[in-house]
């Protein structure tokens, strides 16, 4: 049985690895002596029979006491030996006994010093087990569009940084036509805090870069993931002129494959009242519907093609007609979604 052992395994490995094991193939350091009794694994293979394990005796209830009716052994059933526990019969949930609270709060303080251990607890233990901060920059849409004889461009991007509970958000979006001034561009700076497992409450300020006559706004919104995996961003804006507007966005990623993704997107703009200087009518002012088909070479890099349809309504449409602009427009899109 104790044949001389072959050479250690795994010579001549395929990779020229600088700092790697050649494997741990090795003989057992000291072969066990001749096997005299029935080994469990032999027994398992039916080669022999194991001697039955003696029934364990409950130390609190030795058989002689049990026989006198003084107590009941906890392992009365001999078939139970060597003692599987019953998952159903569990003792009640209870707080720790008093002695569990005795002694020092931190055992290692006595060995390494309270000052040293305290520093490591706060700087290392805490920071490395839940205290991390992360961030992301997402360019959700960076696109050119074609339609009705005009070539335009648009962007929508955001960035955040922070802990699980407190994050600083930056958002920007804008659009324009090639050969003209930027039509609209805004930036938002928001503090974001999760309020449900799937939604964050966001509050902050918005500044409109273009048109430069635009007012400043306070922003209050929610952003997150609605049932059925709809990404939702809804925000109300209160301008320093006292005008209240709102924006609601939703999008959905329909996976054709894991890399080819069709994304319907809807954006609604609303206003509490008529805002003459910004040519916005009360109620639903505009709707934009988009359908973008992107290919994720990697999740962080996904060019897309798509179409969009934008239409203004009510008083906003009237302002557009008065300017001589179209009320509704289809556009073809080519763009890039990227993040890091």
């Amino acid at each position: 049985m104790r044949a001389p052992l072959l050479l250690a395994a795994a010579l001549g490995l395929a990779t020229p690895v600088l700092a790697q094991h050649a494997g741990h193939g090795a003989p057992p350091p000291e072969p066990p002596a001749e096997i005299s009794t029935c080994e469990p694994e032999h027994a398992a293979m039916g080669h022999c029979s194991l001697a039955p394990t003696a029934d364990p005796v409950d130390p609190n209830c030795p058989p002689e006491h049990a026989a006198m009716g003084h107590c009941t052994p906890t392992r009365a059933d001999s078939e139970d030996a060597p003692g599987g526990s019953d998952p159903v019969q569990a003792p009640p949930v209870a707080p720790p006994p008093a002695e569990a609270f005795s002694g020092p709060a931190h055992a290692a303080d006595a060995v390494f010093g309270a000052a040293t251990m305290g520093r490591v607890r706060s700087d290392v233990l805490i920071e490395e087990h839940g205290g991390m901060r992360t961030g992301r920059v997402l360019i959700d849409r960076l696109e050119v569009s074609y339609g009705d004889g005009s070539d335009g461009y648009a962007w929508e991007a955001d960035a955040w940084y922070g802990s699980d509970y407190n994050r600083l958000w930056f958002k920007t979006e804008g659009e324009g036509e090639f050969g003209h001034d930027i039509e609209a561009a805004e930036i938002q700076l928001l503090w974001s805090r999760p309020v449900t497992p799937f939604f964050d409450l966001q509050a902050g300020v918005r500044h409109d870069i273009e048109p430069d006559t635009g007012p400043a706004h306070l922003v209050l919104g929610i952003q997150g993931l609605a049932p059925y995996w709809f990404e939702v961003d809804a925000a109300a804006f209160l301008s320093d002129e006292g005008d209240l507007t709102a924006r609601f966005e939703a999008e959905y990623d329909a996976r054709i494959t894991n890399q080819l993704i069709l994304q319907p997107h809807a954006e609604l703009e609303l206003s509490a009242g008529d805002i003459v200087e910004r040519e916005i009518g009360g109620g639903l002012s505009s709707v934009e519907l988009g359908l973008r088909l992107r290919y994720q070479f990697v999740p962080e890099f996904a060019p897309y093609v798509g179409v969009s349809y934008e239409r203004s309504f009510g008083g906003t449409a009237d302002y557009a007609r008065a300017r001589g602009d179209e009320v509704a427009a289809w556009r073809v899109l080519v763009g890039l979604r990227t993040w890091f």
Partner: peptide, 30 residues
Amino acid sequence: KRPPTRSVDIHLTGNMERFMWSFDGRTLNE
């Protein structure tokens, strides 16, 4: 061989979307 005298329940909790993981809803750093 003693039977346990009390039980302690520990809930394994998390948020897959936010990648938050904890025991009883609280992380060590909390």
